[in-house]
Design a binder for these strands. Sequence first.
DNA 1: GTCGCTGCAAATTATTTGCAGCGTA
DNA 2: TACGCTGCAAATAATTTGCAGCGAC
Lengths: 149, 149
Amino acid sequence: MNADKIRARVEGFSEVCRQNGIKTTHQRSVIYRELVETDEHPDVETIYKRVKLKIPEISLDTVYRTLRLLEEKGIISRLGSHTERTRFDANADQHHHFVCTQCGLVSDFYSEELNAFPPPKAVNTVGVVHAVHVEMKGICNACAEAHGE
Amino acid sequence: MNADKIRARVEGFSEVCRQNGIKTTHQRSVIYRELVETDEHPDVETIYKRVKLKIPEISLDTVYRTLRLLEEKGIISRLGSHTERTRFDANADQHHHFVCTQCGLVSDFYSEELNAFPPPKAVNTVGVVHAVHVEMKGICNACAEAHGE
DNA sequence: GTCGCTGCAAATTATTTGCAGCGTA
DNA sequence: TACGCTGCAAATAATTTGCAGCGAC
């Protein structure tokens, strides 16, 4: 993310809070800013350490609470759909997943085109791709019906 | 996965163990079979409960150990690249990730084509897709160099 | 001033580990 | 037979929660 965009995000934070009906506290602003200013996708402990430099008396659970809150509001996201427990898959063929954001259902699907999708140029400057995994998120039929009726 | 394929996988398990230099124990066979026979991507607790019906004296940590072992050997996989701690991302634009399987680096990239990739027909029978997220796994340049030299 | 937010400490949940006996190769 | 594997119980690590005082609106 470029500097202008970062600044805009940070400055707009209290407005975003207002829109989401939550208070703009000093702790939340600092945590959010820390996350916007980096592209390292840090973990909670890392964010905590960095925020602690600015607010030494902050507690780890405030960081947890804030991140969870911002995630619930859709302001930030967590990597790799970590929400629940670890789940396993014995399907050894290359495949992809459809994930229902409502009920958590995960179903496999196959796509030669996706398996073979050429990495964008930008990716090639970062490293060499060995595998492509696609996660399509949406609402499964069962949930859609339950909702529609 | 169809019935023939399942049978083939289950029958081939001891051979797979031999190839990977691990012993084929009753517990491992049952755990593996349980995972191959379902397409539900169960969590550890669920697998444990099911296996317990066949081996009542099995312990939860054997299930953990076995799943971890099979994963290390590449025989099964875990969903959503859960290996490490939860990580966060404040990038609100639709984007994708390149993940280095060596050092864990995650970097963002953008691709209009991927954002707009039409869901395969098979997916449309399961539900409605709202978002597409692609994870490309590979080796980043830093790791490649460290390895090459 | 009110009610949500924070820090503290303790609780929970998921996962891992040390050890001695057992079973596979 | 030998050494890896298992069950048990206890240890860790990650994350959540109850409570009383504080601060944003």
